[in-house]
């Protein structure tokens, strides 16, 4: 007849937290790292709500709401930062950022080759927005100009 105990929710929360941490530690895609961090927050939220229920007041739930707010802020700023990082290196790989190592350390580069994957069928693509479709012979200068300029400056 006993209902689900507090302990069980706490265990679920802790497991979510630990799984998120593994994701954060092991994955190299910045976005997945961030998703993992959000999952850790979910684990904490489960704990807080469970304690809220357990103690019979709403402090835990209120705190969870604030976690929600902070997570939203964090997502906004983090995504902006990720976009900036992506613009610099044209990649989301976090391992590209290891300049802050000891000066005489060699950078860590993965050498194990990736397995050859079968060529994927190219998915059909729409014309990107903002560019007028043009005959392949004459490339409009204005539309190309901005793009190349941006690329050049980004290498400076």
């Amino acid at each position: 007849m006993t209902p689900v105990y507090l302990e069980h929710y706490l265990l679920v929360g802790a497991a979510l937290f630990a799984l998120g941490m593994i994701g954060f530690l092991a994955r190299r895609n910045l976005i997945i790292m961030f998703l993992s961090a959000e999952m850790m927050l979910q684990g904490v939220a489960v704990n807080l709500v469970a304690f809220s229920r357990y103690r019979g007041n709403l402090g835990g739930q209120a705190l969870t709401l604030f976690i929600l707010t902070v997570a939203a802020c964090e997502a906004a700023v983090a995504l902006a930062l990720i976009l900036m990082l992506y613009r610099r290196r044209k990649s989301l790989d976090v391992s590209l950022w290891q300049e802050l190592r000891e000066p005489d350390q060699e950078p860590i580069v993965d050498e194990e080759p990736l397995p050859k994957r079968p060529e994927e069928e190219p998915s059909p693509r729409l014309t990107p927005a903002g560019r007028t479709p043009s005959p392949p012979t004459a490339v409009p200068q204005g539309a190309r100009g901005d793009h190349t300029q941006e690329q050049e400056t980004s290498h400076v």
């Binding site: 530690l25 092991a26 994955r27 190299r28 895609n29 997945i32 990649s91 989301l92 790989d93 976090v94 391992s95 993965d110 194990e112 990736l114 994927e120």
Partner: peptide, 12 residues
């Protein structure tokens, strides 16, 4: 598509 980063893990 998939980048190299997604196919490797850091110290699994």
């Amino acid at each position: 598509g998939l980048s190299d980063a997604d196919q490797r893990s850091r110290e699994p």
